[in-house]
């Protein structure tokens, strides 16, 4: 039985109760520093980015070219067969216009994250990146976009070697 109006356990506090120390509490900042290895596929992908290239991997059994690249095909569970250099253009699969940061602070200039299907990869295979040099209101699904790269001297083998994608 759970009727409306029944009194349940659970005591709601306000931020004020912490600020004024009306309730006892402790805090702790866990020391969580990680170094994530890039591994085989990602290491190669990042080297490609440094050279201004987008690389995918191809599975000949499933006839699939995927990006981000991986060493195994999750459909047939075999090793991928070869590297494929893809174009640095693609189409917008979906996008958002985001006005807040992860800790809910307002952004003055909204960000436009998008999934971009990369030309040369199989249909629907895309990556997450940002769009810029575009009025957010003008962004459409299916819009053609191209990577805007950092100057070669500033590239460091990072997804950020592509500054953003812009419409073409």
């Amino acid at each position: 039985m759970l009727e409306t109006g029944i009194r349940l356990h659970g005591t709601a506090l306000e931020e004020e109760d912490f600020k004024t120390h009306r309730v006892f509490y402790t805090t702790d900042i866990p020391k969580l520093q990680y170094a994530w290895d890039c591994g085989v596929a990602m290491g190669h992908y990042l080297k490609g980015l440094k050279q201004g290239k987008l690389l995918g991997t191809y599975c000949k059994k499933c006839k699939r070219t995927v990006i981000p690249p991986r060493v195994f095909c999750e459909l047939c569970f075999r090793n991928m067969d070869k590297w494929v250099e893809l174009k640095d253009t693609g189409i917008v699969n979906t996008f958002s216009i985001c006005y807040v940061t992860w800790d809910m602070k307002k952004l003055i200039y909204p960000e436009i994250p998008a999934v971009i299907e990369i030309d040369g990869a199989s249909k629907g295979k895309g990556i997450l990146h940002l769009l810029a040099e575009v009025d957010p209101k003008q962004v459409k699904l299916g819009m053609k976009v191209k990577a805007v790269w950092k100057p070669k001297s500033e590239r460091e083998g990072s997804i950020l070697d592509i500054k953003y994608f812009k419409p073409i």
Binding site: Y34, W36, C38, M42, Y45, L46, P68, N93, T94, F95, S96, C98, V100, T101, W102, E111, P113, A114, V115, I127, L128, H129, L130, L141, S158, I159, L160
Partner: peptide, 26 residues
């Protein structure tokens, strides 16, 4: 989010919901 290909872009959880909702709507 993938630590190498996605986190450097500064994503937050709202992104994936917004991206999925937009795809569904459109």
């Amino acid at each position: 989010f993938d630590h190498t290909t996605e986190r450097p872009l500064g994503p937050n959880l709202l992104w994936i919901f917004a991206l999925e909702m937009n795809r569904y709507m459109q």
